[in-house]
Amino acid sequence: MAFDSGSIGATCEHCQAMFPVAKSAAGSLQNCPECGRATSVGGENDPLWTVIKGAAVLGLVVASVLVYQIGGPVAGAAVFLVGAAILGLVRAAL
């Protein structure tokens, strides 16, 4: 099974076979070469989505720093942790 720099690995959810797919196929459904059934390929490849994720992380850092300036280190850390947990939940839901 050849994996080159332009491909990523996928594992079939039906037969557990591993196979390479193009990086551009991240987030899509692809037919498994072993069992032939469609299986989901992890990851995202959309530039807009990457920008939104970056903006969310930047917003969290800025909010944490602002709260740190106003309310001190405990409040800043609390905002950062709560924000990170929310982002993690949203990420998992997607």
């Binding site: 987030g27 899509s28 459904l29 469609a38 995202e44 490849n45 959309d46 807009l48 989505w49 939104i52 997607l94």
Partner: peptide, 13 residues
Amino acid sequence: RQAIDFSACYDIV
């Protein structure tokens, strides 16, 4: 394929 996608792609199974 994506939740947010300007050029949305849809897989048909």
